[in-house]
């Protein structure tokens, strides 16, 4: 049985949707950040999949994945620091209390 492009795209779609649903429904700030990273992982899987199956020369999707990984780590570091600063005042990790961010 051969693994086709649709298998990998289905996994990427599942990861993106799971991250999206988690971002919308979960109330914990740290879980929301983890959900955003899961969304990014789904996007990266799609990039690598298309680069492998459809682009046999330049592999641009690999480069985009590298950039997205770096940007995702930077975004997470800043978001966690902002959360830490706001937690000093709010004393809660419920995202509904962070409306005035």
């Amino acid at each position: 049985m051969e693994i086709t492009i649709y298998h990998y795209l289905s996994i990427g779609l599942f990861m993106f949707l799971a991250g999206l649903i988690g971002t919308i429904l979960v109330k914990n700030v740290i879980k929301v950040l983890i959900s955003i990273e899961i969304m990014l992982l789904g996007v990266n899987i799609n990039f690598v999949t298309f680069a492998t199956f459809c682009d046999g020369i330049k592999f641009d999707g690999y480069i985009f994945t590298l950039f997205y990984t770096g940007i995702g780590a930077v975004e997470l570091a800043i978001a966690l620091y902002l959360f830490y600063l706001m937690f000093q005042k709010k004393k809660s990790d419920n995202i509904e209390k962070y409306g005035d961010l």
Binding site: N44, I45, A51, F59, T65, L66, T69
Partner: peptide
């Protein structure tokens, strides 16, 4: 597991970056 997918797709460099960073 995402790193495993990257490795399966032939992108070892991205797999290493994914495992190290994330």
């Amino acid at each position: 597991s995402g790193a495993i997918f990257f490795y399966m797709l032939g992108s070892e460099y991205n797999a290493i970056i994914q495992a190290a960073v994330y």
